[in-house]
Design a binder for these strands. Structure first.
Lengths: 236, 236
DNA sequence: ACAAAAGTGTTTGGAGTACACCCATGA
DNA sequence: TCATGGGTGTACTCCAAACACTTTTGT
């Protein structure tokens, strides 16, 4: 009976970090580059890491996000594990793994998470040996990412659609603390791939008890300023 | 930087196999027993296995089901991975692992799947060294299963609820080929924890194009026999 | 005859959808 | 004053939910 050769088996966690810039849905990717005599490339990958000893999967995901953003209490949700034996078979992926992990890697099963964070000018990324940037989810579909990360992102997107359907308040994780109804409508439409009617959307959100109107309006816009709202959790 | 000691890391796949006996929702569990001078117990576990080399996760789940039931093309859906380092720390679980795998096991991350199958008198289970049986999902909540299998079953149940919400035709995986509307309503209610109105339910299913009425009625019932229906896939 | 489940329509309320105009503000 | 998005109400449709009686069959 063939039991897997544990010598080369590893488990990693990868995070599909979603953000919203007011217009488009974005995903956080890390630059990955190899500079070798006969190998030179520069592409992108998801933030992720091999799991540590005695570390739970959720903990690992949380650690990855905290290391990268400095933030705690980020909304995380495990959505799928990817274990196709061929997922680490691309030569550039193999080379990169050898360089960065110093381990003999035969196979990596990865557990994928989605994360929702507020894009903020103040946010600074601390990627260990490369830099992190936001990429429009539509552009990503045309890019060739490391490993099977294109596929992981696609499944991650499906996942947050389902999640938001079940728990619409998750959208507030993507918005700034104070936001306009337009912003809420746009992020809603981007996630659901719809185009909501403005009046009907207003009617719907006016029934949300956890949405509270502020005595403030947005500033610096070249037109009538919109009212600001905030999200109030049910059990504070 | 602490990288996990791969020597003791393993990945397994566990399947929460759901069946419906006409009345209750059941899950397939395998008897597990240890007979040792100072250790004697008899409890239950989910069907599962360490993954093989070069085997994808879905393949492993499929293999486990085929080995156990002899059936192919069972509906399977991956729903969550469990990797808490403490999940294999119960002494009886450690003992059982050592006896059955002959491996030094430090940690097992398991990828969990749900499966939907038709309970059938003809079904014969081939569990390697023990026997398999159906257990009412409500009874299972009171039982103490191996590892964290209680928790896995609970999450698996939530998963099929979501799945059935998205794709109601999955219920037909649990019903015999010919079934009555009552059976369909009961399995629907069991999964959703609801109590549907008979007339409203009839109205709803009469709009399902993939449900076809047969020229047969059930037999051997001590009351008016109900019409039989079958499920017809959209693209045959 | 009776027990037990099958089968069948109508009404009502709430949610979603379609649709157009005036308002406030900055440039 | 003009360009730009903000903010608002009504009518229609559709789906979900409530609700009770007659029919068939076996015992």
């Amino acid at each position: 009976m063939a039991i897997e050769n544990s010598f080369t088996l590893h488990i990693s966690v990868d995070c599909v970090v979603f953000g919203f810039d007011g217009e488009k849905l974005k995903v956080l990717l890390i630059e990955r580059s190899i500079n070798e005599p006969n190998e030179l490339y520069n592409d992108k990958k998801l933030p992720g890491s091999i799991i540590f000893n005695n570390e739970d999967l959720d903990e690992a995901a949380s650690r990855i996000l905290t290391e990268l953003t400095g933030l705690k209490n980020i909304y995380l949700s495990q959505f799928k594990s990817f274990g196709n034996p061929g997922r680490t078979s691309n030569p550039r992926d193999i080379l990169w793994l050898e360089r960065t992990t110093q381990l003999k890697i035969g196979r990596i099963v990865t557990v994928a998470y989605t994360a929702l964070i507020k894009i903020d000018r103040k946010l600074v990324f601390n990627a260990a040996d490369s830099s992190a940037n936001w990429y429009d989810i539509k552009e990503i579909a045309k890019m060739q990412l490391a490993f099977d990360h294109n596929q992981i992102i696609e499944k991650g997107l499906e996942h947050i659609r389902h999640q938001v359907n079940l728990e619409p308040h998750l959208l507030f994780e993507l918005l700034p603390k104070k936001f306009t109804i337009s912003q809420l409508r746009i992020i809603h439409d981007v996630v659901h791939q719809t185009r909501s009617d403005v009046r009907n959307f207003q009617k719907k959100v006016s029934q949300m008890p956890y949405l509270v109107m502020l005595d403030e309006v947005e500033e610096g816009v070249p037109h009538r300023a919109a009212r600001l709202y905030k999200y109030k959790r049910k059990n504070p």
